[in-house]
Design a protein around this nucleic acid. Structure first.
Lengths: 344, 344
DNA sequence: CTGAAAGCGCTTACAG
DNA sequence: CTGAAAGCGCTTACAG
């Protein structure tokens, strides 16, 4: 479907040009505000274009300019489960707001189905549907990331990818943040027997948050009492892990808020009080942790801010403009609420 | 950017054709599995295409076929605030899963900025970037909906639009559902002095949920004791409305869960127990209500299911295929949790 | 049945 | 400086 004139036909540059009495080429230049065209002609073209309701064909423009005028937000299907709805919505908000400001369309691509050995998002990229992509939360071993990178398509990754040294990435320092959160339980709340519920360890985020936890307990000499259980970022797993364990710990560092909430419900059913018997801290702050009772203390990850910066960086990359950074960490902030013992 | 051969140039149908020794036209037909092409040639074309990494140009195809191969999910900016993140993520999930199955791209469009009197999403549509659109949660008086509708572009609306009798819409019966939720507080929990916190009354959803509440209290002859306060779907307003009111009621029907949660925190700070002193019920079930303490009883709106059905309907509309419905209601379900007095 | 031209709607490199 | 041709990469209507 397309812009229609009264007769139902699409309004093209030829129509505008005919009405103004110039060529489509001149019309095109007029709308592009070229110096070649006189102010009077530009004005006439603009008036007629508005009258006829002319809107340029994105396909024709894309074909001619070899530029889609769109970027893709790539969501590996696995990470949809892994990172959850709220995370993507924060990311999507950031991406769309920047793209909007730059007259760029946003495409959502997943690798749900594959055909001829290409994932859906590879096809999006290679079919020229998008001029570049934001890829978020890929697994460490996701080989499509390498292929995408190798293809030379403009790409900005959200997250940490230490092995991809040539990639442009933006993330948070999960290790330091996790260490700081763990140290908070130790220093401020005097906890010594700590349990860590990890994220999925095929994601760098899971690895880094675990490593930060381990650094902290090691630094304080309480590593022998520390327990690390492998989780997957899901509330269910958080619940199950805590439910299947004895009561030998006095603090929990969960790698995300969903698992922290699962832990909280499990503690509740076991009759263990939070924070008095068990201090609890999560990670993410994408919405859940603020509304529970007790509210979950957490490390706030500025997902939207990362998405905004990633999108601005991508647009510069596409345009070949100079950019300030190649690998960037944004700051987290700590939200000490009730579940660690800080809040009211 | 585009699919690259070893030399860095985009691989086009001409390259494939040259290699196979046929014309690009024949190549195109081969890839489209046309009867005109022999099985042997098709096989050769497919092999060479795979070898060269050929992926067709979406722009060229769109221009030639006058079909974008994409649909737009339109998000009026106002409703972003109004309906919140989780709602859109449910909708987006539904839309992308169906679109994926039909090799269709999904574009996110908002009306954030306007140029030459056109909203961003009108430009998306009229520039042929999308073959149709899903529009969700528009305000009653949003005149761009009328213009979109009048333009004849394939459009499916999520929500209720009683005044747009020609539109294809899918929604839930908010009035009946709200009435049933209210009756639950009356019949099952014996509440007689009810407070309703409305949604924004410039949205049909707000109006219908209020009307359902009023029907129930009227039917039970307790309308004189009922209080209706105008809200806006935000937690803050829910909190403020309850905070600014005396304690003359024993039940609250909130038009959504965010306001219900705001009410809950306000009741907590006033020292009123939920559900014993005040029974509370919300609406939506997009995530929040399940995790609070007490968990909020609510009416579950199947947002993803609506989005799936809307997208399937849109694709049929675009293809001119026969469809089963023009206006459809999907069933809500009731989640009676602790806040009304039902749950454990 | 099959080959190859025409043309979708733009923009820009080129000719004059 | 300015006019108008060429061509982006496809697909289909047409000619043979």
């Amino acid at each position: 479907m397309a812009a229609k004139s009264a007769t139902g036909k699409r309004v093209t540059l030829r129509d505008v040009a005919a009405r103004v009495g110039i060529t489509p080429a001149a019309c095109s230049m007029a709308l592009a505000d070229s110096d070649r065209i006189s102010p009077a002609t530009k004005e006439a073209v603009r008036r007629v274009a508005a009258e006829l309701g002319y809107v340029g064909s994105s396909a024709a423009r894309a074909l001619r300019k070899q530029r889609a005028g769109a970027i893709a937000l790539i969501v590996p299907t696995t990470s949809r489960h892994v990172f959850g709805h709220s995370y993507f919505m924060h990311v999507l908000s950031g991406v769309t707001s920047v793209a909007n400001d730059h007259d760029t369309q946003v495409l959502i691509a997943t690798n749900a189905d594959t055909a001829r050995g290409l994932t859906a998002y590879e096809r999006v990229m290679r079919s020229n549907s998008a001029d570049g992509a934001i890829l978020t939360s890929a697994a460490i071993e996701d080989e499509t990331v390498d292929r995408l990178l190798a293809s030379g398509l403009p790409l900005v990754l959200i997250g940490n990818f230490p092995q991809l040294t040539d990639a442009i990435t933006i993330g948070v320092d999960d290790r330091s943040a996790s260490r700081a959160a763990t140290e908070h339980l130790i220093e401020v709340h005097g906890r010594r027997r700590l349990l860590h519920l990890t994220g999925p360890l095929d994601h760098q985020t899971g690895v880094d948050r675990r490593d930060g936890f381990l650094e902290a307990v090691t630094a304080y000499g309480i590593g022998a009492d520390a327990i690390v259980l492998e989780g997957d970022f899901s509330e269910e797993r958080g619940h199950a892990l805590v439910d299947g364990l004895g009561d030998t710990y006095d603090g929990i560092v969960a790698a995300n808020d969903d698992m922290a909430f699962g832990a909280l419900t499990a503690l509740r059913s076991r009759g263990r009080a939070v924070p008095s018997e068990v201090a609890l801290i999560g990670f993410d702050d994408f919405g859940l942790s603020r509304v529970t009772t007790p509210a979950i203390s957490t490390v706030s990850v500025p997902a939207e801010e990362m998405a905004v910066a990633a999108t601005e960086r991508l647009l510069k990359l596409i345009d070949g403009k100079p950019a300030e950074w190649t690998r960037r960490d944004v700051e987290v902030s700590f939200r000490y609420r009730q579940s660690c013992g800080c809040g009211a």
